[in-house]
Every structure is written in structure tokens, then in C-alpha cells.
Amino acid sequence: MSFIKLENIAKSYLYGEGEVHALRGVSFSIDKGEFVAIMGPSGSGKSTLLQILGFLDKPTSGKYFFEDKISDSYSDDEIARIRNEKMGFIFQAFNLLPRTTVAENVKLPLLYSKIKENEWNTLAQKAIEQVGLTHRVNHEPSRLSGGEQQRTAIARALITNPEVIFADEPTGNLDSQSGHLVMETLQKLNEEQGRTIVLITHETHTAEHAQRIIKIFDGKIESDSIVKNRRKANDMELLK
């Protein structure tokens, strides 16, 4: 049984008078521990796909199984709980709370979790350590570089120990060096901790950090293939 399974997912929006078909029948599955990149040009439907995968949006038709359970059968509160406990989100725009320290930002998901408050600081410390920001714990986002902000967001996604991390163009706002560091962190999480990672990107270069690339074009899967020469972010560092 697959961890994530999509069956003929379609999504269309009413846009003015007409209808826009963002997804036109997408089927694939992702196993636990996979590092999958969903790649496609802008407007291809990849973001819509991620929103459906992350329970942020509902498909117009088709079936989405998360842990073998069909997504329609979850209540709103159950979905909130799944997002909190099993999913971590990383956004292109970081989405950190301003005027709030790194530590507080990282702890944000815990507000909505069942985890006891006396464990919060230890968990935050561990997550911040994993992304290498221990020296920035009490900084506010405005005093961090883009890469550091994104790594704060990764720590935030990690803190509830989720099974899957959805990363939507995580390097889109970063210079190449910060981008490498973020990709290195994601690879490490995948390889060392066996976390499932679903990465959305439009860059082949970034996508090649994954084990598998699903190419989307015009709302349909164009190709679904294993990466032969997988990029290693830390190798890139060595090459420099």
C-alpha cells in the first residue's frame, strides 16, 4: 500500500465566465521515504497538485488516498491535525511571522499540537540544530539572510516530526549558494531520517536533487522517471 496515492485527480476553477482546468486527470503514488520532485513550467498545475496533496485544497474529481484513507472521509479538524502532525510545509516566500524570533517561529506549529509545553524548547532546539541555525535562535527574521529564513522555515516544518515535507519552490527566492544549503538540508532529512519529501520546482537543476521527477505539463503528467545522475548538494559544495 502506498503512502500517498492519486487516482485520476482533476481540478478546475471557475474563472470569470469560463473554466480553467489546472489538473486534468493525474495519477501516481509516492512511497514512504521517497524524495520526489514535481516539475513543470508555471501554470502547469504543479502548485495546485501540491495544494491537493497537502489538504489545502480539494480536487474537483478523482480520489486522493493519504495513508490508504480517501481524503474526502477526513473532517476539517482531522485535516488540521494531519497537517499539524504528519505534514510539514516549506514555502517559496518563507512565510515567517515578522517581529518574532527564530525560536518562536519554529515553535508555531506546536501551538496547535498536542505536544506538552515542557517539551517545546527541546524540540525547537533540536529542529534548529538540524538546519544549523543554533547561533540565530533569538534573531528576528528581518535580521536573517534569505537562506537562513528558509532554513528557519524548514526547522518549523520539522518540529512536529512530520512524515512528509511539502516544499513549494523552496529555493525560488534564494541565491544559488543559499539554495544549495537548503537542498543539502532537504537531502539530509531524506537520507538520514527517511523523511518523505515532495518538492515543487520549475528548475531541472533543483529537481535533480530528488530521486524521482514527475514532470507536469498543462495539467497532465508528461513523464515520471527516476533520476539517474542525482545531484548531491554537498558534492556541489566540494566542487566549488
Binding site: 497537502g54 489545502l56 476539517d76 479538524d77 488540521a80 491535525r81 497537517r83 499539524n84 502532525e85 510545509f89 514555502f91 512565510n95 511571522l97 508555531l108 506549529p109 501551538l111 496547535y112 499540537s113 518549523r156 512536529t160
Partner: peptide
């Protein structure tokens, strides 16, 4: 709006 969306994606319910 963004803050609300973020909180929801991190697991906040409508009630929260």
C-alpha cells in the same frame, strides 16, 4: 490573510 493561511497550513483549525 497570509498569516491566517500559514497558521492553517501548520495545523490551526478554523476554531483556533
Amino acid at each position: 490573510t497570509r498569516e491566517i493561511g500559514l497558521r492553517k497550513s501548520l495545523g490551526a483549525t478554523g476554531k483556533n
